[in-house]
Design a protein around this nucleic acid. Structure first.
Lengths: 147, 147
DNA sequence: GCTTGACTTAGAGTCAGCTCTAATCTGTAT
DNA sequence: ATACAGATTAGAGCTGACTCTAAGTCAAGC
């Protein structure tokens, strides 16, 4: 009816090793078994995997995801905890996004900086004086980003 | 003149252990030493640290950062490589940002979902039928995000 | 002169998250 | 019947990035 672990791996983009590891860690308690004892991934399992992958990629550790999965199985008594978990995680992801944007600015500056330097054939093009170091070009870069 | 490793740790937000580790890994070849052999962080070192931290936080592995630092010390012959490195990294960070935004949508949906469920006192508020599972609520969630 | 505190190094330990190995089992094709 | 492909498990191994320990050095204050 469902599919095997290697098919599930292909479809989810994870490896079969990783799926077994997640299962061992208690992240996939909903995955059924065939009479032979093989895992049998059904459609809804991929939706769980989707959510797990989303939480993982935003930096949630396996043990926190397990906690959430367990809450889901405990029913309505844990609704509040689950909501709070997502609110906490939302803040963390917002912070990550702000951090990425901040770093992106520096990267963009560096691209400008090195584009100019490559054009000129020398990093010295960025110096007021004739002889500054790479360190002081970084100074200017950071100063530029502050303003 | 400059400052000690523990002062540098405080100022950079890293630990002294981490600074020594970075140095051992070749990320801080520009940091001077006092006559006693102690590291002596000067102003420009913090700008390097700033850049290293930015690259680290956007997922660049230590060995790639070391490669970049080495290129910087080799002078103008490596300008092209440095530019290409930043262009590659820019793409990676853009992908990360897109990924974060995608995951954020799911998290936002979940917050809506659990807010409603907490209000109602039961997850069943999200079911058309009287008795669906948590898995099928995830189905609806993903479907909602596709549209 | 000696203690104290902060520094140094080499190298061991920790942790998360896989990744792989070895031994075994099972269903299908010849 | 037998081989084979692909599944299973327990548990070992790996990688990256720290994190800590142990043993030793050095400068300043009593």
């Amino acid at each position: 009816m469902g599919c095997t672990i290697s098919e599930a791996a292909k479809r989810s983009g994870l490896t079969a090793y990783t799926l077994r590891y997640y299962d061992k860690e208690g992240l996939l308690p909903f995955v059924d078994r065939t009479s032979a004892g093989n895992r049998d991934f059904k459609e809804s399992d991929f939706e769980w995997l989707n959510l797990i992958t989303c939480l993982k990629r935003t930096g949630m550790p396996v043990k926190n995801i397990r906690e959430f999965i367990n809450w889901c199985r405990e029913g309505d008594a844990t609704l509040q905890q689950r909501l709070m978990m997502f609110l906490r995680h939302q803040k963390e992801v917002q912070a990550q996004m702000a951090e990425l944007e901040h770093c992106m600015e520096k990267i963009n500056y560096k691209i400008w900086y090195y584009t100019k330097a490559v054009e000129a054939g020398t990093e010295a093009v960025h110096n007021k004086d004739t002889c500054e170091t790479a360190a002081s070009s970084t100074t200017k870069f950071i100063t530029a980003n502050v303003s």
